[in-house]
Design a binder for these strands. Structure first.
Lengths: 343, 343
DNA sequence: ATGAAAGCGCTAACAC
DNA sequence: GTGTTAGCGCTTTCAT
């Protein structure tokens, strides 16, 4: 019953014409039923659905895309790491895309350089997508790509120009500021900062929020240490900081760095939080169970993805309407045991 | 120069016919060039490429798929969590898919029940994929879907039947056994186990490996504690275990549970590793920097994804060849400071 | 080594 | 409410 695929499509899957024949209607009517278009009598709709089920009919999206010019897919360019931040954002985006009724096409880049991102975009465009999400939190030069679909940048400003660019933030500045304020409120005179790699937009935003908090109270900003998000880099920075007896409070731009930092402090005989208070950033799942449980700020990935996608879908489906950038999500400082009032 | 999109496809993107005209060849020749088919003179090839670049031509994959019956895409059904394990596996799969010359289409499920998986597969099939990867590490009843493309199950046995099913493992049994052996080698009489949720195939495999190691040495198996992978559940189990003074060694089926466990032990006044040795599973990035640095086993995600994809691509491109299941990747126990010789 | 014709499965526009 | 016609952009087959 299955003659080997001749030319075109795969073997002998049922097509809309088969359904139409079995249901005794035209192909167009089958199409109407499957697209939930109005003006199909309930009786006919039932017959069509029935025939389709009996045949095991599935729409051919390639054909739909070709005929309609819409792929009903959204492409995502993301950093190819399993890091908690990027991975969470990807999961949230996928869910938001699905909820919006689109399919997800992912391309990940190894190193988030402009060329890599451009390549990713290029490949998505070739695949066919109605819109693109750039979840590459890196801000480093601009790539040039000819893009004719709307593009959403999450957690970063537009890195290139497209027909229509949207942005949605994760509110890092505000969150970083809140983290720093928390330490300041505990009576610490100075708050040190272990920043992330400055090619990352998020790292720069957090640095900025930290600086703003200090300046708002007229404090000077201690020299900044730089890490690469890894616990190892937090550890290295921590060894430096441990040498300085004046350090009583540190805000690390990521939980992993905070964990490495704490480890270095403990090894150097500085107690956390009695001698030094530490705040992280992300609220990754283990944060509550490391020793001591980490005070941190929670990143609103879900909210950012949802807001951003609302914009993107709007831009895809109603290009004429102008919409305001998404509001920053609420700030959530999770106070646990790694911070204490200054001794 | 841009008349608004009439019926079909988007506005006025260049098509192969445009390239053909500019290069002074037929459309078929353009097609040949872009598909790296033989029998195109270098001169013509050059002209075509040139024309394409000048026009900003991009192939339309929907049309290619429709005409050829191949989508050049592989679909992935994955669990929608940012957990280190699933996220790492997804990243590895994406990379392997890309390296194999395919595009990735992802569907994530909230809860990995058979219906959810079946729904994901269904939606991928509708999207159009040449093969499917099921990275849903859950083994719970079988769904029934009519699948006519090869399906690769990673880290789990086939959950349903398809035209062609392949499997690739992460070698959990062996790894768990090695972890347990490590503790036994350190002189511990009994090794306790905090298992993962038993709906997860990986959790069952690790339990099995633990049991095998004990039985191989004629030891009895202490009662098993069950967690849900979270640090919180490890913590809860740890509180129980801390009450039992005889416990000197614990193998946790995941790093996060191990971290929660350690926290509970420390709170109960049991030192790690002096009083109790702990081994985790995964080697997530923070494992080296928690206190104490965690002894664990590394999961070979990259290798599993690569091996699995080799099989899948083989099945897609050369359906006639039969191939053996992928070999289990090598075992790597990472010894750090959470384990010590029995006091 | 290159080209012409046909058709993949579907939706868009319009007729009825 | 439903059907007819045309065509989306490409690959296939076969001819040259």
């Amino acid at each position: 019953m299955t003659r080997p695929g001749e030319s075109g499509a795969s073997s002998t899957l049922p097509r809309s014409a088969d359904v139409a024949r079995l249901a005794g209607v035209s192909r167009k009517t089958v199409s109407r039923v499957f697209n939930d278009e109005p003006y199909v009598s309930p009786a006919v709709r039932g017959r069509v659905l029935d025939a389709a089920r009996r045949l095991g009919y599935r729409r051919n999206n390639a054909a739909r895309a070709l005929a309609s010019g819409r792929t009903r897919a959204i492409g995502v360019v993301t950093l190819g790491t399993a890091g908690y931040g990027p991975a969470s954002l990807l999961v949230s985006i996928e869910r938001a895309v699905r909820d919006a009724g689109y399919a997800t096409r992912v391309v990940s880049t190894l190193d988030a350089d402009p060329a890599g991102i451009a390549g990713g975009v290029e490949s998505l465009l070739e695949q066919g997508v109605d819109g693109i999400v750039i979840s590459e939190p890196i801000d480093e030069g601009a790539a040039s790509v000819g893009v004719d679909v709307p593009v959403l940048f999450i957690g970063a400003p537009p890195a290139f120009t497209a027909a229509r660019t949207l942005t949605a933030g994760t509110g890092s500045v505000t969150l970083a500021r809140a983290a720093t304020d928390h330490l300041l409120d505990l009576g610490h005179e100075a708050v040190h900062h272990i920043a992330g790699p400055q090619r990352w937009f998020a790292a720069r935003e957090r640095l900025e929020g930290w600086r703003m908090a200090l300046e708002a109270r007229g404090r000077s900003t201690p020299p900044v240490m730089y890490g690469d998000w890894s616990a190892a880099s937090g550890y290295a920075a921590g060894r430096e900081l441990a040498r300085d007896g004046d350090v009583t409070a540190v805000f690390a731009a990521g939980d992993e760095m905070a964990i490495g930092l704490i480890r270095a402090l403990l090894e150097a005989g500085r107690r956390v939080p009695q001698d030094v208070s530490v705040v992280g950033f992300d609220d990754m799942p283990v944060a509550a169970y490391v020793t001591p449980p980490l005070t941190t700020v929670r990143q609103p990935f879900e909210a950012a993805a949802r807001e951003g996608l609302k914009l993107l879908v709007q831009a895809i489906e109603k290009p004429e309407v102008d919409l305001p950038p998404a509001a920053d999500p609420p700030v959530e400082v999770v106070v646990r045991a790694s911070t204490a009032r200054r001794a």
